[in-house]
Design a protein around this nucleic acid. Structure first.
Lengths: 220, 220, 220, 220
DNA sequence: TATGAATGAGACTTCATTCAT
DNA sequence: AATGAATGAAGTCTCATTCAT
C-alpha cells in the first residue's frame, strides 16, 4: 500500500507540534535554574528551544505561566515513576533505604530535574502558589517515601524508636542539598568531592546512628 | 568647656552618615534574599533603608557593586567573630561539636545572615566572582572549623577514622540546608518542625554514626 | 440529461467561494466600526467570517487593502441603488425630501452601512486616500441628491432662495450625525430618543425654516 | 533682600513639574484625535510633549490611564467656564441661543477641545467607562444648557410648543457634527464651506422653524 | 550630601504576515 | 483553495542610572 504522504506529513507536523511545549519547558528549566526567573530572558529560552520569541506565546500565556508549567510538568511524571519503582523494592529497611537513595540520585540528581530544588528555593517568595504546590506535591510525597521505610525498619527492630518527621528531614537534607549544590556553588568549589561517596558516607553514618541499640544486650 | 552644639550636630550627622552604607547593605540583603538579585528594585532597597534612590549611588557604584558589598561586608565580620569564639571552646570533641552547631545557629541561623546561603546559591551563576569568594572565604573557613574538631576527635579516640572532607560535608549539609529552607520554602511547609530539635537529632545521630567502635564494651 | 453531481458540487463550492470576499468584508466592517482599524485584529475578522487567518490573504493583500475594500465595495452598490430609487421619486420638493430622508434611514441608517460614516471619520487621518474617495464618491453624491431637490423646491417657489451648498450641509448634518451616534455613544445615552421622531422633527423644522415667505397667501 | 536662589530654583522646577501632566495630556489629545487610541504610539506622544518615553509613566500608569486623563481633565474645566458665561447671558431666547452657539464654537470649535467629540465617538466601544462619563458629564450638561434656553423661549411665547429632548438633539447635531467634521473629513472636502456661515444658516433656519405661529399678530 | 525627576536601553508581549502542508 | 503554526518587527512598560537643584 502506498503510504498517504499527506496524512504522514500532517502526523509528522503534529508530532513536532506536540513536542514543542516540552522542548520549551526543558529550555526554560535550564535557564531559570541557572539565572533565576527574573534574570532569564524569554528570547534566550526561545533560542535554546530553537524557536522564535513569538512561538513561546502559542503555548504559554506569559512568562509566569511558563514558570508554572516548568514546575508542574517536569516533576509529576518523574515523581510518579519513582514512587512506582519504590513500591517494587524488597529487602530489609536498611537495604531499601540504600536503594532509594541511590535511585533518587540516579533519577533526580543526574537529570535535568536536579535543578528544580534550587529553582524553587530561589523563587519561592516570588511564586507562593508554585512554592506551595512544590512542597505539597513533591517534598511531602518524597518524605512519605522515606518515612514509610524508616517506619518499617522500626517495626522490624532494625532501627531504634525516633520522631519520624524529624528523622526524615535529617535523612533527606544532605540529599536535597547535594542537588542544590551541584547546580549552584559546586563549580566554584575546588575540593568538590564525589557525590556518590558523600551519599554513601551519609547513609552509612545515618544507619549506624539510628541502629537499634545492641541487640546483644537485649538477649543478655 | 562649652559644648559646641554645631560640631555636635555635625558629629551626629556624621555618625548617621557612617551608618548609611550598613543600613543600605542590610536592606539590600533582605530584598536580594527574598526576591533575588534581578527581582529586586533599587527603589525598594532605597525606601527600606530610608534614603532616596540617588543616594544609593553615593555609596555604591552600581547594583552589582551593592551585591558585592552585601556578600563581603555582611559575612566577614560575623565569621571572624565565630572563629574567635570557637577558639575559646574547650572540652571533648563531641561537646565542641555540639557547641559549634548551636553557636552557628545562634549567630547565622537566627540573624539576617541566615539568608546569605540562599542568596549565594540562587545567584552563583550570575556572579561567579562572588560565588568563588563565598566558597573560599566562607564555606571553606567553616569547613576548616568543623574539620579541626573532627580531627581532634579522631586523635583522641572519640571518633572512628574517616575521610574528613566527606564527613565535614555530610555534617554541615543539614545545617546549611536548614538556613536555606527557613528563608525559602519553610513558610509553605505545613508540618514545619522545630529547627533546634532537627539539629539535635542530626548531631546525635551523626555522633553515634561516627563513634569509635568499641567492641570491647559489647562483649563486656 | 444526467445531472453531473461533480459539477454540481463544484458549482456550490464556487458559489461559496464567490461569497467569501463579501463575508470577510462584512466581518471587517463590523469590527473596524466597533474597534477602529488599528484596534481590530485580523484573527477576529477571520473568526467572525468563519475562515482561517491565512485565508484572508488569499483575497486581500494586506490589512490596508481590506480596509480599502470595505470602504469601496460596501458603499458603491448601495449608493447606486439609492440614486436609482430617488430618480423615481415624484411629487413636491417637500414630499421628495421627506421620502429621501426616510429612505436614507431605511437603507443606510438601519443596515450595516450605518457604521461607515463613523469609520471614515475615525480613520480619515490614517487613510487619506480612502477619505478622499469617501468624500468624493459618497458624501458629494449624497449632497447632489439633496441639492437637486432643494433646487427644484426653490424653482417651484416652495422654498426661499438660499446658498445651496450651505443648506445641504445643514440639512444632512443631523442625518449623518444620527448614524454616527447610533454606532458610538448611543449605548451610553440613557435618554436616547427615537430616531424616526428625531428625523421627523428635524425635517419639519427645516422645511418651515426654508419655506418661501408668503404671509400674504396665509392671510388670503 | 537677596532672593533665595535655591528656593527660587525649586519653585521653577516645581512649576515645570506641575505643568508636565497638562503638556502630556495636550499632546496625547492631539494624537489620539488624529490617529485613534490604538494608532497612537506613546513614543510620539512623548516626543510631542518634549519628554522621554519613560517620563509618561511618572504621571500616568498606562496608556489607558492617559486616555482617561485626556477625557476628564481636558473637558471639565472648559465646560464649567462655558456654563458660567452662559449664566451671565441676557436677552430674548433667540438672542441667547445665538450667543450660545457662537460662544460654543469660540470655545469648543476652535480650540483643542474640538477634537474630543471625534475621539469619543471613535473610541466609545473600546472605553465604555469613559464613554459613559462623556455622555453624562459633557453631552448631558450641554443639552441642559440648550434645553433651558428653549424652555425659556417657549414660556415667553417666542417658540412654539415642542418635545424638548428631541428639539435639543436636532439643534445640537449640526454643531457637534461641525466639530467632528473639522477634525476628520474636512481636509478632504474640496468645497468646504465656512463654518460660521453654516452655523448661522442652521440657527436662522432652526429659529424660523420653531417660531411661534402667529402670522396674524404680525399683521395686526 | 541628598534628592527625585528624567532618561533610554531593554524586557515582555502582540499581531500582521508568511509558508509548509 | 485553505489552514494554522511560526515568525519577528514594533509596541508598551520597567527600572538602573544620571544630573540639575
Amino acid at each position: 500500500m502506498i503510504p498517504d504522504s499527506d496524512s504522514d506529513g500532517r502526523r509528522r507536523r503534529q508530532r513536532r507540534k506536540a513536542a514543542r511545549p516540552q522542548e520549551i519547558i526543558a529550555s526554560a528549566l535550564e535557564l531559570f535554574v541557572d539565572r533565576g526567573f527574573a534574570g532569564t530572558k524569554l528570547e534566550d529560552v526561545a533560542r535554546r528551544a530553537g524557536v522564535s520569541k513569538g512561538t513561546l506565546y502559542l503555548y504559554f500565556e506569559s512568562k509566569e505561566a511558563l514558570f508554572q508549567a516548568v514546575v508542574q510538568e517536569m516533576v509529576l511524571p518523574e515523581l510518579a515513576r519513582v514512587e512506582q519503582e519504590v513500591r517494587e523494592f524488597d529487602g530489609s529497611a536498611a537495604v531499601l533505604l540504600q536503594r532509594l537513595v541511590n535511585h533518587w540520585w540516579d533519577v533526580v540528581g543526574e537529570t535535568r530535574l536536579c535543578g528544580l530544588p534550587k529553582l524553587m528555593i530561589a523563587e519561592a517568595a516570588n511564586f507562593p502558589e508554585q512554592a506551595r504546590f512544590y512542597v505539597e506535591q513533591v517534598i511531602d510525597r518524597a518524605r512519605r517515601l522515606f518515612a514509610a521505610i524508616l517506619e518499617k525498619g522500626i517495626r522490624q527492630g532494625e532501627f531504634r524508636e525516633m520522631e519520624l518527621s524529624v528523622a526524615v528531614r535529617v535523612l533527606m537534607a544532605p540529599l536535597v542539598f547535594a542537588a542544590i549544590w551541584e547546580r549552584s556553588l559546586a563549580p566554584f568549589d575546588k575540593e568538590c568531592c564525589d557525590v556518590r561517596e558523600y551519599l554513601e558516607f551519609h547513609l552509612d553514618t545515618f544507619l549506624r546512628g539510628i541502629a537499634a541499640e545492641t541487640p546483644v544486650k537485649r538477649n543478655g
